[in-house]
Simulated assay, not measured.
Amino acid sequence: MGQIDLDFLPLQVINVGANDKRSFDRGDKGRLVKACLRPGMSMANLAIKAGVNANQLRCWIEQYKAKERGTADTKGATQEARAVFVPMMEFPGGDDRVEPGQDAMPVTTLAALPVRLSARWPSDAGMGLEC
């Protein structure tokens, strides 16, 4: 792996607000984030060299990734906009505990039958819904 040019570190503070909030050069922040995204780079080590908190650097990285995905909100925080489709299945016998490999039928084929939905956690706590 080639050598990374880190001569811009520590980050230069360009402004300090009334609440002691520091502002950094955008170009240098971007270079730091891109350096963190390279394989084998230690984000914590780069945060120390940059003179910023590792949690702040992690936020900058998430904002950068969100901007790349086009999912940044107006405050710059990321929105996890994931649409996930999980098909519901009805298991013969209505047993809460389903054995691996047990056959299931899609709920759409059982529309006229009563539906029972249950979930059980490893602690053996659970909940159910019957319609």
Rank of each mutant, 00 (worst) to 15 (best):
V52G: 04
R58S: 12
N19D: 14
M41V: 08
E68Q: 13
Q79I: 13
R82Y: 05
P87A: 09
T74E: 06
W121M: 15
G17P: 02
L9N: 00
T109S: 07
V13I: 15
E99L: 15
V84I: 15
V33F: 00
V115F: 14
L37A: 06
V52I: 15
D25F: 05
Y64K: 05
Q3N: 04
L57E: 00
T71E: 11
G40L: 08
L37R: 15
R120C: 15
F24A: 01
Q12W: 01
L110D: 06
A35Y: 00
G27C: 07
G70M: 07
L6W: 01
I48S: 13
W60D: 03
G76V: 06
T78C: 12
Q63A: 11
M43D: 06
L57S: 00
I4Y: 04
I48K: 05
G2V: 02
D103E: 14
T108G: 01
T78D: 11
D5W: 03
P10K: 00
D124Q: 13
T74C: 04
E90I: 03
A77G: 09
A83H: 04
D5A: 08
M1F: 03
A111T: 02
P114A: 08
M88G: 02
S42R: 11
T108V: 10
D7L: 03
R38N: 03
A104W: 12
A47Y: 01
A104L: 09
M41C: 06
A18L: 10
D103P: 11
E62V: 11
L6K: 14
D124K: 14
M105W: 07
N45I: 06
G27T: 13
V84R: 05
C36G: 04
R97I: 10
L129E: 08
Q79D: 12
S23I: 05
L11V: 02
L110N: 12
Q102P: 00
Q56A: 12
T78V: 15
K29P: 00
P87S: 11
L117E: 08
D96Q: 09
Q102M: 15
G2M: 00
A72Q: 12
A119Q: 10
A18Q: 13
G76Q: 08
N55K: 15
S123W: 11
V84P: 01
D7P: 02
